[in-house]
Design a protein around this nucleic acid. Structure first.
Lengths: 219, 219
DNA sequence: ATTATTATTTAGACAAATCTAAATAATTAA
DNA sequence: TTAATTATTTAGATTTGTCTAAATAATAAT
């Protein structure tokens, strides 16, 4: 299936919002892609025509098997480029998303596979998200919850679900990165804040707002 | 100056055809970009508006200082990616052009400079063409002639002026690559063929047709 | 079970980049 | 120096991806 860059971005966004097999609404997709619902409806018709999505008026969108395969290829390219930028070109964590957003649209299986090989066929990207292999097989992300809902005390950061520059810069400033181990000191319901402690650092207070984008698993 | 991918391709092509300061004709540009003269006229108006070219009806096209700067940035990115693909991902000589054609449009100075650094700030790309530095300074390609017009006997291959897959594959098959040293045994006028000898290889006969795309300099 | 609200779609328009066919300018040849 | 040829531009159309405003469907609230 030969898709334009715009179409690829739709497929990727649908994949992301589907999270398994949820039906994706026009509005949610418009919000995700920072566009208008009317534009989504237009594109939905095209993607249905190209058989990458199932779509019926007012019934929402899901990827076909073909569409899922395409999405996984895009995700694979994106995450491999992120690895490359961080590991080989010394970019920091929060800078790579936008660049990978462009690089991911160079569709060459050979390039993708060579890149993967060059990086040692990594299984997770710098944000902790799993990288699909050449056949589109993706390891289920390990059991993780957002920091605001964690019940264990000692945790390790596995991913960040909001790639906004502001959040990533904030985390950087607080020395919270992938693999950072932390301990929950207290969770204050009355002001929606969480007190955490990272080894060798002063105790930190963060909002639930931020915490819900930090994925962790017990350590 | 913020140019679209299409606009960047025009600027790059104009730079190539200008070769110093020649005026570029609508037809020549259309041929180079595999498009129609009418499309070139349309785009010329836009690029003039954006002040990257000088253009008057029926008078042809030249780059402005700004346009030249942009062209050199694109050329820089293109050639650095070619280096990366050949040196780091083990692509062969003739495969990299098309991929670099896409990668070159990711415009990030930081990425470009990091990539250059990572590659050891190379001065020439795998085709032997010089790579502009971060300021757009480009070393004049060393004195070279096409193989069919060379007068010296012992030569070294410095570049190939035709990036067609067929030619590059042919050269690959004959073990003619960048830096290959060769000797002219004979130049037969009557059938437009040239006999050459590469060390440790049987004598080879190639057509002038091919030879004129192989750039060499005396060694 | 109507009404109000929200979500989605349709209709019609626009910008970018291209095209074809026709018109016009520039160049070359007779 | 006219006529013929070639190069270039214009006019009008097309495709892709987007938009706004209006219409319609689905859902929630009274």
């Amino acid at each position: 299936m030969n898709l334009s860059v715009a179409e690829e971005n739709y497929v990727k966004a649908i994949y992301k919002l589907q999270e398994g097999d949820n039906v994706v609404s026009t509005n949610a997709l418009a919000y995700e892609l920072d566009t208008k619902p009317a534009s989504v409806t237009d594109m939905a018709k095209k993607l249905k025509e190209k058989q990458v999505i199932d779509y019926e008026k007012y019934k929402g969108i899901t990827l076909t098997a073909e569409g899922r395969k395409t999405a996984l290829q895009i995700v694979r390219r994106h995450r491999l480029w992120e690895c490359f930028l961080v590991e080989k070109l010394s970019f920091s964590w929060e800078e790579v998303h936008e660049l990978a957003e462009e690089l991911e649209h160079v569709r060459s299986e050979k390039l993708t596979n060579r890149l993967s090989e060059y990086l040692g066929n990594p299984l997770i990207d710098p944000h902790g998200d799993p990288i699909p292999d050449a056949n589109g097989k993706i390891t289920k992300p390990r059991p993780q919850t957002s920091l605001d809902q964690a019940n264990a005390k000692r945790l390790v950061v596995t991913a960040v679900t909001d790639q906004s520059v502001s959040l990533l810069a904030f985390l950087n400033a607080k020395s919270i990165k992938l693999g950072t181990q932390l301990e929950i000191i207290a969770h204050y319901e009355y002001d929606n804040s969480i007190e955490i402690k990272i080894k060798n650092q002063p105790t930190l207070t963060i909002s639930e707002q931020v915490a819900k984008h930090i994925m962790v698993r017990p350590v």
